[in-house]
Simulated scan of single mutants.
Amino acid sequence: MKTLVLQENRVIFTVIKQRAYHYVNVQDGEYAECQKEDAIGVFLEDKNMIVPTEYIFVDVEDIPDGVVTGKYCYAEEDGFYLDPNWKEPPRTPEQLDEAFNEMNLHQTEVELDVDFRLSNLELNLHK
């Protein structure tokens, strides 16, 4: 049996040994085990990392072949399913170039919007 660590949106963040985690807070500058209600995070023992307390921990018997962290979600009523927001990463130079162009276009749009808003503020045209 394994424990799934799910983000709040049910996307699988990682998989750990069954119940290999504990809640922690900070005492005297060090992480210390504590009760859930006092925790600032959850320490994953076999990953040696701390995740937010909002993450969800679910024990499962088995993980189907092909299920990948970050790409799949899990809900007890639905089982494993593909994250509806998942996009395949670029695999060819052309796809990579297209992805960079999309990011640059978005960044340019944001910069233009910020410039427009600042200009309006400078000219006292804001409402």
Rank of each mutant, 00 (worst) to 15 (best):
K2T: 07
K2V: 11
L4M: 11
V5P: 01
N9K: 05
R10H: 12
I16E: 04
K17F: 07
Q18Y: 06
H22N: 01
V26Q: 04
Q27C: 08
D28K: 13
E30D: 09
E30L: 04
Y31C: 08
Y31D: 08
C34K: 02
K36L: 06
K36W: 03
I40A: 02
G41K: 00
K47H: 03
N48E: 03
I50W: 02
T53Y: 00
Y55V: 03
F57N: 11
D59P: 11
I63G: 01
I63N: 03
I63H: 03
P64N: 10
P64M: 12
G70Y: 10
D78H: 08
G79W: 07
F80D: 01
P84C: 09
N85I: 14
W86N: 09
W86Y: 14
R91F: 09
R91E: 10
R91L: 11
P93K: 05
D97L: 15
D97R: 15
D97M: 13
D97S: 15
E98Y: 14
E98W: 13
A99Q: 11
F100P: 02
M103Y: 06
V114K: 03
D115N: 12
R117W: 02
N120E: 12
L121N: 13
L123D: 11
N124G: 13
L125G: 14
K127L: 15
